[in-house]
Design a protein around this nucleic acid. Structure first.
Lengths: 342, 342
DNA sequence: CTGAAAGCGCTTACAG
DNA sequence: CTGAAAGCGCTTACAG
């Protein structure tokens, strides 16, 4: 029946199945030491009684939990949703649970969130573009396996997976120069401690220089519109406009229209993340694809490897997995020639 | 120092502070039975040693955890971010942890997510507009205190907090008729089992009828653009266009422009959620405000009340808290007359 | 105000 | 292939 009543324990299952308590545990955890026939009988009894493992007890006994903590900076970016989904799949494929915590601009809130994840003794932490100092990250890495997504490993015992920002910048700048844009502008969020933001900017600057162009930078608030408007008015020439991410880039679309700039001829708008916003017909943004699925599955793998080392084994040195990005080309930069590169 | 090493336990703290194990527990949990001076000394020792409670052990001993599970349908709506933030604040104000799980269109994934929350023996579950049947919800309510947000209580032991859909519909329709719109169209997502979607539609229909108007309904996919275009072409007369939420409504903005409809004269676009997207200058959407902060804090309160009842006490009957929505009026319906109603 | 002891539900050597 | 026993770190009556 699987009904409620107070919690059913392994004891109840053991009694009902006429076996010992430990056998139930072994059977339910799929130990090879249990006869298949017995295992099946126990599993059936457990299901019939509505047994559900008590994760707290299991973690305590096992000295380690089977859940991974995911810390996202916020939920305002579809990229984060993709990541969360991919990680959800990757973890459940390994029979792990995933708990998401949403950070905040306020460091205090972020720290509290991480603390509560540590209290649960998560087996590892995945942090997406965290607003934390390298020192903080390394300190957290001392307590629990950590894998960063979208940010370079700061050393210590902290791993990371990210897309090659230089390669992404080269893809974008290459695309823009092919389109004969004369200058390149970058619009990014006005933030103080977001490392990835600055890395993106400097990668773009370097790639632009290498192509003989300079990079003009404007910072924007929540709405990128005003910054884009400024940028356009100071660049009447054919301009390659790089916006920090899709969600900001959609603010640029109406501005282009208003100011009478024509994608493909005197303007080319490109951005990052290639989320569903970029794919929408109304926006149709050329955008860097970050390969969220690869990012996610890799992060989980790195974390599990580090966790499996246990407290034994010499601490693994930090690993920094760098992925080649792709560029999804759409109407915002060259109408009529949509494709995926490379 | 608060450094790492293997986990510090209450035992370690007790030894270091020269007191008994139980006293440490009492002190750290702020029991009034402990002398203030002792409490302080123990707290200091704990901090110095880098002690962090083992939530698994605490939950097990206490037979109840101090974390609430939040289940969101997805992360594609800024409304969910607001909710998550508010709940984060509300829970930490009560010294509870919040774990977020992101659902999915696939019921199997959603069930697994809920299962893993139940395995942790969360003290309660908050579900936002869940894609689950009433029966499923009631069944979950048998296992753990449940509070729904944005959906009517299905009975059982399940509470709910939501905005009055009828009142919201009346606000919108009232606003549209004031603007002399002749017909009303509703564009909502094409879904099969989203109760809130249908409730919204029927509330609108009823309010429209009461105002002597009929409601034309078009369903849309991920991009609302095409549905909006259809709607507009079949309604050349002044049209009040209600879109299911902000994120879909922004697809309508460029369509209005293309088709040369003018907000305030022959078209008035309104939507739901009043998120940051609605507030952006480029979109400036008139939108129903759902009072996320009230929704969130109320949900936490209801949950705690039900949890405090414990296994004793006659089961509380379900509560259905209904809030009066507000309407934020912006340029998409009447340019130049932005305000908040009521 | 403080300490000794039992127990939460599970896992895991260990001995058969 | 199976069972008896210890222990994970904490909380909580209970007795002083």
């Amino acid at each position: 029946m699987g009904t409620s009543g107070q919690d059913v324990t392994q004891d109840d299952v053991a009694r009902a199945a006429g076996v010992s308590r430990s056998l139930v545990s072994l059977a339910l955890n799929g130990s090879p030491k249990v006869a298949e026939e017995t295992r099946r009988r126990i599993a059936e009894t457990a299901a019939r009684l509505g047994y559900r493992v008590n994760a707290a007890a299991a973690s305590l006994a096992r000295q380690r939990s089977r859940t991974i903590g995911l810390v996202l900076p916020n939920l305002r970016n579809a990229f984060f949703e993709q990541i969360a989904h991919t990680l959800g799949d990757a973890t459940s494929a390994r029979d792990l649970a995933l708990f998401v915590t949403v950070g905040s601009e306020q460091p205090e809130v972020l720290h509290r969130a991480i603390e509560s994840l540590l209290s649960v003794r998560v087996m590892g932490l995945i942090l997406v573009s965290p607003w934390l100092s390298d020192e903080d990250l390394i300190a957290i890495g001392e307590e629990v396996p950590v894998c960063l997504i979208g940010r370079r490993s700061p050393g210590g015992r902290v791993d990371s997976v990210r897309v090659d920002e230089q390669a992404a910048a080269r893809l974008l700048i290459g695309h823009l120069t092919e389109l004969d844009m004369r200058s390149v502008g970058y619009v990014g969020p006005r933030v103080v401690n977001d490392t990835s933001r600055f890395e993106r900017e400097s990668a773009l600057r370097r790639a632009a220089l290498a192509a003989g162009l300079t990079l003009d930078v404007h910072e924007c608030g929540e709405d990128a519109g005003p910054a884009v408007r400024d940028m356009l008015s100071s660049h009447p020439e054919p301009l390659g406009l790089v916006v920090h991410n899709d969600i900001l880039a959609i603010d640029a679309v109406p501005v282009l229209r208003e100011t009478n700039r024509h994608p493909g001829s005197d303007i080319a708008l490109v951005s990052y993340d290639n989320t569903y916003l970029a794919r929408r017909g109304e926006f149709s943004l050329t955008s860097i694809d970050q390969l969220e699925d690869v990012l996610g599955t890799t992060a989980v793998r790195l974390l599990c490897e580090r966790a499996d080392d246990g407290a034994t084994a010499p601490p693994r040195s930090p690993r920094d997995v760098v992925l080649e990005p792709a560029l999804a080309i759409r109407g915002s930069s060259c109408p009529g020639r949509e494709r995926l590169t490379p």
